[in-house]
Each structure stands twice: as C-alpha cells, then as structure tokens.
Design a protein around this nucleic acid. Structure first.
Lengths: 204, 204
DNA sequence: GTCTATATGGCGATAGAC
DNA sequence: GTCTATCGCCATATAGAC
C-alpha cells in the first residue's frame, strides 16, 4: 500500500534479514535488539512496532522455513513408500536446505535458545516425521541410526564441513550422495520380500 | 561429618559438576552464576573465589575433555595408517564420548557461546586432526564427507537420537557400527593398489 | 511508522568484613 | 573460603510525542 515514506514499507522484511544474519553469525543470545536496530539505522522502538518481542522475530523466520518442509512432507505422504521415493525425498530435502541454509544453521547452533522458543518442539516434530518417512516401520536400530545420520549429515554439512575446500555446490552433491547411500543401506530390498500392500511403482 | 559444611575442599569440583549440568540442560547464556550458586547453596562471590570468570568454568570443563582426546590422537599417530587402525580409532573415540557425553552435548549445542570462548578453535583443531587421521591423504570429496559424517554422527548420537527407544548402550553400539561402516567405505582397499609405503594388512 | 526518553530488572564482577 | 553489599552495565520492553 501507500505509506508516508514510500521508500520503505519493507521494513519488516529488512528486520528479518538483518536479524537472521546477526543471529546466525553470532548467536541468538549474543545479538541484542539494539544491535539489529543500529544496523538498520532505526531505533529499538521501531522494531517493537513490527514485532511484539524478540522471540517473535525468530518465530516469523521459522515460519518461512516450515512451509517448504511441510510441503515436502505432504508430498511424500502421497507417494508409495518405496526406496525410490525415499531417495527423491532426501534429494528434495537437500534442495530445501540450500535455500534456507542460514536459518538452518541458526536452528542447529542455537538449540538452547530455540528450545524454549516454542518452535523447538514443532521443528523436532517435523524431523521425526521425516525420519518416519525414511525408515522402515520395523527397522533395526542400526538402520534407524543410518536414517537419522542421513538427515543429520545434511544439516551438519552446512557448518561442519565449511572448512573442506571445494565448491559449495560440489559439497552439497557429495553430502547428498552419502546420505542417499545411508538411506539405501537402511532399506535393504531383500529384508521382507513378501508383503503385498506396498506395490512398487517406481517409474524412472 | 560434623557441620553441614564439613565436606569442603571439593567445592571446585562441585561447581564444575553443577555448572555442566545446568549449562548442558539449559544452555550457557541462559544459566546465570546466581543459579549455579543457589543450587550449590553458596553465594556468587564464592564462585569467584574458585573461578576468575564465568568463562573460566567452561574452560576448566573443556580441559577435562581435551586430555583423553589428545591421548587418543597421540596413540593413533604411532600406529600404521591402516584401515584397522582407523576402525580402532573411532572405537576408542566412541568410548571417550561415553565418558564425556554431557560436555560434548554442551559443546555441540552451544556453539555460539563456545566459539568466542577461545576454546572453540582448539576444539575444532582436534576435530580436524581426527579427520586427517581417518581420511586418505588424497581422498575424494565424497570419502571426506563420509569421514566427517562418521565423526559427527557419534557426537550427534548424544542428542539427536535421544528420542530413539532402546538401551543407551545398544544405541552407542549401533552408532559405532554405522560410523565404522562409513570409514570403511571411505577407505576402499583397492583404490590405489600400487603404493609401497602404506602396507595394507587388512585380512578378512 | 518512527522517534526520544525512560522504566525495570538481571547480569557479571568487585570490595571488604568475618 | 565464604559471606554481604554494591557497582556498572546492558538487556528487553513501554509510554507518548511527532
């Protein structure tokens, strides 16, 4: 719409951008609202016009991430539970991570801060859903570990492998490859050979 | 015996214990010295007698962890760089992690706090050394990812897999198994068959 | 929609008595 | 070795003018 100062009606967006940048660079607790405001060349009070609390800023950030993941989960639930589906699932997940990398890193590195921000539970729930979609219902413990490791290594790739040399896109591909391998190993084709209800409809 | 305040001399140790417990439960920033003191039924000033700053408490905790890891690194460096050595290396590492689990979880979950606590670098350096011991000198990117994932999954096991049902010791074994698998895959016996100096003595 | 000014409170840290 | 008391700082958050 038309604001008195036509140049900015995007202040809310700019707050989110700067906040995410600072949060993920120095941590949630170490970043004060004063710092965010200064970087934006506004005052603290201006922030409070757009967001009720500091927490609200994080929550708003998280919601941008939750959407794509929910879509991904919804998609996977319409597919047959085949190995092909699972491979495609983590491929798409890897794609999502590329977009939301800073936010993911932030969530990973600031677990204590995120935990009691009420979104912690909701984030964890999504991870468990993904996990449930990757593993076989009666999977052995080692296979469950494989699936969790696959998911986790994709998150970890964002920061644990920053010191590896190489093109970021190359790294992402390498991580995806290893994750795919883990999921494949966790879903042996000859585990339960006779089971009529899950029809294999893989069509490459 | 005698007075309620008779068992003294171990105050420093008790501070470390309570601090680690609270730090890893609620995070470094969210844990105040007042809280630690109250739980110990002493005053803040008492803490300052034993530790110069809040940071010093963390540093002292970290040093307890660093010793065993340094020993492990030193041991590995005396061994031939065979796959067997690498497998034994992560087996022993898994052992070390069992002992220092809360501390490891703390370091993993409080990266922003730890980062500029000056021990962050030293911790990272040790991880890189372990990584260097696991991977082949000219390993491909995917093999490097495998090695990092192996290391990382052992750390991650401490908190990412807490909601998996099952005996903790069983879980540790499962994680170790997957990690071993990853390292094995990253060290193919037939990659560079002709190379005189690194005698492969794997015998399955 | 953004500002100035201020309220309120917890934090880490220190001084000095016992 | 532990206490009481207090300092100085910066945090989040609010009130009200423009």
């Amino acid at each position: 719409m038309s604001t008195p100062q036509a140049r900015r009606g995007n202040t809310r967006q700019r707050i989110q951008d700067v906040a995410l940048e600072l949060f993920s660079a120095q941590g949630y607790d170490k970043t004060s609202l004063r710092e965010i405001a200064e970087k934006l060349e506004v005052t603290k009070a201006a922030l409070y016009y757009h967001f009720k609390t500091k927490e609200d800023i994080v929550i708003s950030l998280f919601q941008d991430l939750a959407g794509p993941i929910d879509d991904l989960i919804a998609w996977a639930q319409t597919q047959p539970r085949t190995l092909e589906t699972k491979k495609e699932l983590i491929r798409r997940y890897s794609e999502s991570l590329r977009a939301g990398e800073p936010l993911f890193r932030f969530m990973q590195e600031n677990q204590p801060a995120v935990r009691d921000l009420s979104i912690g539970e909701s984030f964890k729930a999504r991870m468990l859903t993904l996990f449930g979609l990757l593993k076989e219902p009666d999977a052995e413990l080692t296979d469950q570990v494989r699936c969790i490791t696959a998911l986790f290594s994709m998150h970890a790739g964002m920061f644990a492998m920053q010191n590896l040399e190489g093109d970021p896109e190359e790294k992402r591909k390498a991580i995806l490859e290893v994750a795919t391998e883990l999921v494949t190993a966790a879903n042996p084709p000859n585990r339960r050979p006779a089971r009529p209800d899950s029809a294999q409809t893989a069509s490459p």
